Computed example of a mutant assay.
Amino acid sequence: MKPNHKGRAQIFQNPVLERLTRTHIALPIIIFISIAGGLIYYGITYSFISVIEASALFMLGWLIFTLLEYLAHRFIFHMDTNTPLKKNIQYTFHGNHHEFPKDKERLAMPPIVSVFIASLLFFIFKLVFGPLVFGIVAGLLFGYALYLFVHYAVHAYAPPKNFLNILWLHHSIHHYKDPEAAFGVSSPLWDYILGTMPKRNK
């Protein structure tokens, strides 16, 4: 699919559903930073976790997010489109982004969808980790907010002259050179570990 630097895909004919597929990047970042902070505050205030536990669990949650980000990007967003249904699903969730990578209003999942998924993950993690969930999910949601920031920066701005340059190049290779490599956006960690680092020319 050849990238188009102008324009926007039309996903739904219904104007309300179509509008719900777009969001300003600041909205989900603010939502998930706020929820992450609220979870840490609640967990510590009501003695579910200590400050030290909160710090360690936060980092663990952040690490878990980087793995979930990688797995979702590689195996769901880039699923094998061998049937018309799979092709439509893939295009709706991710293919349109590869076709129109400069569409700034589709660089994040719509908040109504992402809040639902975050709530579902909270209850799943609560069943597994009990009261430790407050620190872990806080780190996971912070990781998602950081991912949104990095993803937006890569697509909306020229290559930065700071630490983000590595991430900018990594994700740009995924979009413009090799869509079957460089699946990590906020971190290339799992590309290193799982063997999907792009082959770069010297």
Results as ranks from 00 to 15, higher is better:
Leu120Ile: 12
Pro3Trp: 05
Ile40Asn: 01
Ile112Asn: 11
Ile136Val: 14
Leu132Trp: 10
Lys126Phe: 08
His73Ala: 08
Phe77Trp: 01
Ser55Phe: 14
Gly139Met: 05
Ile166Glu: 14
Lys202Gly: 13
Trp62Asn: 11
Leu17Val: 14
Ile76Gly: 08
Leu148Cys: 11
Gly135Gln: 10
Ser50His: 12
Lys177Phe: 04
Ala138Met: 07
Ile35Arg: 04
Lys161Asp: 15
Pro28Phe: 09
Gly37Cys: 12
Asn4Glu: 14
His170Met: 00
Leu148Ser: 01
Ala72Leu: 14
Phe12His: 14
Gly130Val: 08
His5Gly: 12
Phe58Arg: 08
Ile89Tyr: 04
Glu99Asp: 12
Leu132Gly: 06
Ala153Glu: 12
Ser55Gly: 15
Ser186Trp: 09
Arg200Thr: 15
Ala56Lys: 12
Glu180Met: 12
His171Ala: 06
Val185Glu: 01
Leu57Cys: 06
Val51His: 13
Val115Asp: 04
Pro198Asp: 04
His78Asp: 08
Ala153Trp: 02
Leu63Thr: 07
Gly61Asn: 07
Leu194Met: 04
Gly95Ile: 08
Gln13Asn: 15
Ala182Pro: 09
Asn4Cys: 07
Asp178Gly: 01
Ile31Gln: 02
Gly61Trp: 00
Pro28Val: 11
His94Met: 06
His5Phe: 15
Tyr192Gly: 00
Asn4Pro: 02
Pro188Val: 07
Pro188Gly: 03
Thr45Gly: 00
Ala56Thr: 11
Pro3Lys: 07
Trp168Ile: 05
Tyr147Cys: 04
Ser119Thr: 04
Ser186Asn: 09
Ile29Thr: 03
